[in-house]
């Protein structure tokens, strides 16, 4: 049969961004064992994040948080058929090289781990594997995109079970996108300066009214209502970290959060799936924590 002779291209930006597009409308769940990964897949997670400790435990234990043991990541890859993500420390491009060699589907350059470089993030264009990075505001999001991130997630405050910071970050990002939409062409130069972001990306936002890559919500989501809240605010998907496996009944809660993310506009469904799923993680207030992970990253 006749086929085209052009060569296949792997690792291009459209291919990376394509996977981010496929994860929209879904829930990405933090898991620390193959058993948890199976529970997540059973519940309908669209991907899992393989890590050694969930953020709530990293927060409790202190010390240096690093990339996970490859053996643990491979165990999770073997346990599920859905995409497997894993975290590298900010700036630690060798951890990222290892994660790419392991064949993870997405690398999270994450502030939840202890930063490895105080000035530089990873040059993500050098990798075949797509990257997701956290952001607290539009400038941070655009800097990460200019470094090659194929997906942005609002940072929120991981491991707290408190949605307030994620909401602050989403509102800040969407608020500035709206304002840029009404700016004239001369004002865009000032926006680029103020955001410390490339002018070309600011101009693109002015034209399209959205980020050039999908924007997911992370950091503190603990209930089906939290997930639907993030979606109604405009997030394309949600990451749920400690919120599932630090709750009373992870399997039930995971399934409920998946349904809430799909049917985020349907209050009857939200009421049904929020019923009788056991207690959520306890959570902590922002004035009770001594380390804000969201402040990591530059």
């Amino acid at each position: 049969m006749e086929t085209s002779s052009s060569r296949s291209v792997t690792g291009s930006f459209p291919v990376k961004r394509g996977l981010a597009e496929m994860l929209k409308g879904g829930v990405i769940m933090d898991v620390v064992t193959p058993e948890q990964a199976k529970i997540a897949e059973d519940a309908g997670a669209c991907a899992v994040m393989a890590l050694e400790r969930v953020p709530a435990d990293i927060r409790r234990d202190g010390g240096v948080a690093r990339m996970s043991d490859p053996e643990m990541i491979q165990g999770i890859q073997a346990a599920v058929t859905i995409p497997v993500m894993a975290k590298a420390r900010i700036g630690h491009f060798v951890e990222a090289q290892i994660l790419q060699a392991l064949g993870v589907d997405f690398i999270d350059e994450s502030e939840v781990l202890t930063p490895a470089d105080e000035a530089h993030h990873i040059d993500k264009f050098k990798f075949t594997t797509p990257f997701v990075c956290g952001a607290t505001n539009l400038g941070e999001a655009l800097r990460r995109i200019s470094e090659g991130a194929a997906m942005i997630r609002s940072k929120g405050e991981a491991g707290t079970g408190n949605v307030v910071e994620a909401v602050r970050h989403l509102r800040s990002i969407f608020g500035d996108i709206k304002k840029i939409g009404t700016a004239d062409s001369a004002e865009l130069f000032e926006w680029a300066k103020r955001l410390q972001a490339p002018l070309s990306l600011v101009q693109e936002i002015a034209e399209t009214g959205q980020l050039p890559v999908p924007l997911f919500c992370a950091g503190g989501l603990a209930t089906p209502a939290d997930a639907a809240f993030a979606m109604q605010l405009g997030a394309h998907s949600v990451f749920v970290g400690s919120g599932i496996f630090k709750s009373d009944n992870p399997a039930l809660r995971a399934k409920a959060i998946v349904e809430a993310t799909t049917h985020f506009m349907d209050a009857d469904v939200l009421a049904r799936v929020s019923t009788a799923i056991g207690a959520p993680m306890t959570g902590i207030g922002m004035d009770e924590i001594n380390q804000r992970y969201a402040e990591r990253g530059w």
Partner: peptide
């Protein structure tokens, strides 16, 4: 994902190739 790729393909009824993205 590391094997995901872009490739021009020939669709029988099209005069020019179609640029296809294969993602996982």
């Amino acid at each position: 994902q590391n094997d995901s790729f872009e490739q021009d393909i020939v669709v029988h009824s099209f005069e020019t190739p179609f640029h296809a993205l294969f993602i996982r």
